[in-house]
Simulated scan of single mutants.
Amino acid sequence: MLSILTLLFSLFLFASPSSSSRQHQTPPLTSSAQIRLACNATRYPDLCVSSLSKPGRVPPSPNPSQIIHSAISVSLENLKTAQTKVKSILDASVGNLNRTNAAKTCLQLLSYSEHRTNSTDQALTRGKNKDARAWMSAALVYQYDSWSALKYVNGTKEVAETMSFLNGLINVTSNALSMMTLYYGESKNTGPGSDRSKRVSWSSVIPDEHVDMYSVANFIQGDEWKMSG
């Protein structure tokens, strides 16, 4: 009887997870946590999180590249809304030459921005990150210029509301650009420079299970390359 109890007790110990194994079973980051991690690199992190957290905005367990594509999509979506608002101003400006010209200029600039934003998305898909940053920077400049085009004809509620929306568009686009140009994450740093107390507030520690997400292959679609020769 004693030997049977000893055997059962031994089996229980063998089957029970050790404390060390439980400590290493870190749960994966949720999509919302990954979005927050990426948005920490932006100028307007709260706006970034709210715009990317809507259902269906990013895929489940997104990698950094997918989050950036989603941020660009948000910018493009808002840009199209801005175009609709400016067209409404143009339609309501019959007889007002200054506002008509301003609205036409604004629409032209927004069309340039739309083209540059689409070029950004295409460049990222091809792994041309430098080109993507250049296109998105240009898109942002055109958006600011479109806001400026309405500044001197801001005499109606509709124009004021549209300018406010354009300002939000500029912030959203700025966030997307920030993701492409600035992200400070670290993993297992050691030595004199590893003291995190002196880090900037938007720096992040990348969890071990997500380090591979930040590999070069993830950003340039390395697994899709074809070997020559």
Rank of each mutant, 00 (worst) to 15 (best):
D195Q: 07
D145C: 02
E161D: 14
A33Y: 03
G222K: 06
V58E: 02
D46S: 14
P28S: 05
S88N: 13
G191V: 06
S10M: 10
N101C: 02
P64K: 03
R22E: 09
V153K: 01
V205K: 02
K87P: 04
S178P: 01
V172G: 00
V205Q: 05
Q66K: 11
V172C: 03
S137Q: 12
K54F: 13
L169I: 05
E77H: 10
L8V: 15
Y112W: 02
V205A: 08
D208Y: 06
Y144N: 05
E209R: 15
M136H: 10
S53E: 09
F12L: 15
N171D: 07
G127R: 07
R99M: 10
A138Q: 11
L8F: 15
I170H: 10
S75W: 01
V172S: 11
L79M: 08
T100A: 00
Q23M: 09
H24I: 09
T100E: 05
Q108N: 14
S50V: 14
L2E: 14
M136P: 00
S197D: 03
R126F: 08
S51R: 14
N40C: 09
T125I: 06
S228A: 08
F12G: 12
A103N: 00
T181Q: 08
L7G: 00
I220Q: 01
Q221D: 15
L5A: 14
P64V: 08
I68N: 03
A15L: 15
G222P: 06
Q221V: 04
A132S: 07
K85W: 00
Q143T: 10
A149H: 02
T173S: 05
V172Q: 13
D212A: 15
E114I: 01
S119P: 00
S174G: 08
L52Y: 03
K85G: 02
L109M: 05
L150S: 03
C48V: 14
C39S: 04
L169T: 06
W147M: 06
W135H: 14
R126A: 15
N167W: 06
T125Y: 09
P45D: 02
S21N: 10
M136Q: 13
S16E: 09
H24S: 12
I89F: 07
S197E: 07
I4R: 06
A103W: 01
I4V: 15
T84M: 10
S3K: 14
R199E: 10
H24P: 01
S93A: 12
R133V: 13
F219Q: 07
M1H: 15
S111D: 06
T26E: 13
V74Q: 13
H210I: 00
L107P: 00
I67L: 12
S19D: 10
S10Q: 11
T42V: 05
Q83R: 07
Q23K: 15
L2T: 12
N101A: 05
I4F: 11
T42E: 04
V216C: 11
K151F: 13
L140F: 11
R43N: 08
G191Q: 04
Q221S: 15
T26R: 13
N129R: 14
L7C: 10
G127C: 02
V216D: 04
D91S: 15
Y183I: 00
V86A: 03
A41W: 12
G185I: 12
E114K: 00
L109A: 02
S146P: 03
V211M: 06
S203I: 07
E77L: 10
Y142I: 00
K54W: 14
L140H: 15
W135P: 00
V172R: 13
F12S: 15
L2H: 13
G185M: 08
A134W: 09
A160Y: 12
